[in-house]
Write a protein that binds this DNA or RNA. Structure first.
Lengths: 214, 214
DNA sequence: CGGCTATTTATGCAATTGTATAATTTCAGC
DNA sequence: GCTGAAATTATACAATTGCATAAATAGCCG
């Protein structure tokens, strides 16, 4: 009885295939559907191979979480930077591009939400997941803070460290929230509705403190 | 060999016990830890009983999801209404109370986030979960819309239906997002930081269209 | 207090799970 | 072409899963 034939995959690609297969499984069938056998099937290998590349299934899920967050932040940043560079944008426009890319496809996407929610549900269960969350959260927020600092500098506005951090946290929260809403109820938002709301809210948060009146 | 003794539970309480036990399991160990045996253990009964009260485990999870969302919206609304009533608040203040209660404990809570994320991860897997999401989302948004309509009426401002819906969607998104952020990174927000950001952003969205400048 | 029904426990089962281990195949270097 | 290490498959296993069924208990109505 001959075994099925196979090939040695080049450096790193098998590992990446397994991560991608894991993401497919989680997105389509939730964590409970992401079994070693299903994952292996999707990746076109057999289940045992998973433990050749990862100590266990948990570590594969950790890698999948990292991958997801890196993709999200990476996409938002790359698209915004590119756009800003082409149009020789002011720092304020650059920030708005970032808001826009964060609130448009492919960052806003139902599948990504399913993945994200699955991972978040493990944050209080698995300490390593909590660590990954913390890291990826800070990576995104630092990006926001850099953009805000540039705006303040460009507009000759004093930027005390605390004020900067406060703004970054607030804007990060607004982007996250609108992102969530866009993924959850994508169909009710037109092309740029979400972006318009986001920019309006971000500008409100960036205003100096005094004018809190409606 | 005598069996363990037991009591007949009064109308509905056993069912509720099972739902609560399910929520405990999901919050502490994620969906994968919410097995019929674990749930039964928590509820102080044996596993078979679950299928006396529910057709299957899936339906128990559905009930747990409904319960979670009803509690969240219910708490936010009840606390805000109560507060507004005591202080004879204006509609605008009432809306701000609603933002405040939505962005404070017990609505903002790490455990609730774990539950919510677990359920959301099933929305694209299980059509019934999608339906529950839709219903609970609309229930919350309608509440927001009612509050906004009162603000517009009170301030003698025209409130075309489309404008009202647009504002409700936007404000709902902002509240959801800040709620998310508060649950995820609760420790970095002071008592009222989140509320302040929320009210600022909500007011910005409520402003008439013209002034979009920073 | 005796019986009847709703409630609850107990047990078993086939399917699935992650992991461990051994056997096989591929392929780069000689 | 050989050879040996690296990559992959195959099989087995104990544990766990949701569910079905049968037996037992509780407690209300008469």
């Amino acid at each position: 009885m001959p075994r099925r034939s196979f090939q040695h995959a080049p450096e790193g690609v098998r590992r990446q295939d397994l991560i991608n297969a894991t993401l497919d499984c989680i997105a389509e069938q939730s964590l409970q559907g992401a079994t070693v056998r299903q994952i292996a099937l999707r990746a076109g290998v057999t289940a045992g191979l998973i433990r050749y590349y990862f100590p266990g299934k948990d570590e594969l899920v950790h890698a999948a979480y990292r991958e997801t967050m890196n993709r999200m932040t990476g996409q938002a940043k790359a698209l915004a930077d590119d756009h800003a560079h082409r149009e020789k944008a002011t720092p304020r426009q650059h920030l708005e591009f970032f808001v826009k890319t964060s609130l448009s496809p492919p960052v806003v996407d139902a599948r990504t939400l399913s993945l994200w929610a699955s991972f978040v549900s493990l944050i209080h269960v698995d300490p390593e997941m909590a660590e990954i969350h913390k890291e990826s959260y800070l990576a995104f927020r630092n990006e926001v803070e850099r953009l805000i600092a540039a705006v303040f500098a460009d507009e000759g506005r004093p930027a005390p460290k605390a004020e900067l951090a406060r703004s970054a946290i607030a804007i990060n929260a607004i982007i996250d929230g609108l992102w969530l809403e866009g993924c959850l109820a994508g169909d009710i938002f037109g092309e740029n509705d979400l972006v318009a709301i986001g920019i309006k809210a971000v500008n409100a948060v960036l205003k100096p403190r005094e004018d809190n009146q409606p």
